[in-house]
Design a binder for these strands. Sequence first.
DNA 1: GCAAAAGTGTTCCCCCTACACCCATGC
DNA 2: GCATGGGTGTAGGGGGAACACTTTTGC
Lengths: 234, 234
Amino acid sequence: MTRYSGQSRMLVAVDCIIFGFDGEKLKLLLIKRGFEPQKNKWSLMGGFVQPGEGLESAAARILHKLTGLEGVYMEQLFAFGEPERDPVERTISVTYFALIDINQYVQQLTDEYKAEWVSLDALPDLIFDHVEMVNMAKEKLRYKAAIHPILFELLPSKFTIPQLQLLFEAVYDVTFDKRNFSRKILSTGLLIKQKDKERLSSKRGAFYYKLDKRKYNAKFNSFLNFVTDPGNLK
Amino acid sequence: MTRYSGQSRMLVAVDCIIFGFDGEKLKLLLIKRGFEPQKNKWSLMGGFVQPGEGLESAAARILHKLTGLEGVYMEQLFAFGEPERDPVERTISVTYFALIDINQYVQQLTDEYKAEWVSLDALPDLIFDHVEMVNMAKEKLRYKAAIHPILFELLPSKFTIPQLQLLFEAVYDVTFDKRNFSRKILSTGLLIKQKDKERLSSKRGAFYYKLDKRKYNAKFNSFLNFVTDPGNLK
DNA sequence: GCAAAAGTGTTCCCCCTACACCCATGC
DNA sequence: GCATGGGTGTAGGGGGAACACTTTTGC
């Protein structure tokens, strides 16, 4: 036997929900779709899974094509498969969400996609079910970041505690007490204080910190409580 | 345009990881695969997604075909898509895990599948990448049950606190202090004490409880801490 | 010298943990 | 009356939350 008989085959696509943080707001990297249908409408970056290519490789390929980046934090989100989700043809979409340091993003020279960073709280209309995908990704980001130290992936390798706090506040849309915040973050032991300061956003300057990669990898899967029930998380 | 051109189409399957609890151990509902390849090897229950059918519907259909049950707790787990995962033909498998009350399971009359409940800690070899699927499902069950009240789905509508404790202990492979356990569970306010007792497993008998469905639905998505970091959870 | 952001310490309270004894019943 | 599992109370400790003042420096 070389094939399963009597079954119908479908297109399988991968769509990437790419998060970034500009120091103030959470952003999504969106593109203007380059082909029909809905050409020039806003869309997540995506593409079809090729023969001989796994889902994760497909997502990495697509992310790389858009951003030039490799080794990015990426995680499978959900498989969307309603029969009519793509009006052209039955297509399953497996979504991945990625967290990238927005400063690492370099606009590709051959920018066939017209990619833009868009504020997460002012999203334009998106094609198909992409809004649903984004909403699920936001939820998952909140859920996961409350327990695991993934938000560091959105920051440069050197960052300050106030920057980190702004990031958490953007993700959860709340404000934290800075004393409690810094105590909690430092108590994880994940941060290493640097000798130099960031001097752009204040006169006094704030010390840089770096992730302790060893502890980060070791602790990643243990339960850490970064946020105490910020409303309703799934 | 009626089709995307130049892309290759693939089979899309759904596989169900079906958990049950017999009062002592966690179980999986497995079948002997009824067709080639690997006919008569143990396997998860699965099937191909049909045209015009969504992923979730496909999973519900397959679950129903095997168990006769509807309205079961079910959740998408992960999409597996390595190119060689099914040696016959490129197939994407979207997995769902389901929690069912083992007593509700009725062996179907036309049991073409030879389904059996198998202890989770003594799994036989499974076809393809099904072992990986099961391991991921176990992990996710632990992860989720530590925070959300999903384990009730594995029990009958009336259950006792000692039964519930046995279930938690089976899931996390630990033992809990019964005083702390019952205080914690009751403090959620999710349980309603019944007037009658279960009298099989002890002379004194243990009071039955039922889920408060209203509070259950309302609180489902808030963070509840059922388990304090039971080792390494993802 | 003043405005603006960084940095730090303490108290209180709640929840989690550890731990031991009595109760109800079938035999 | 004894063995078996059900059910409860308490004390201590740790961590989260609330809260205010000093420091640094550019202007």
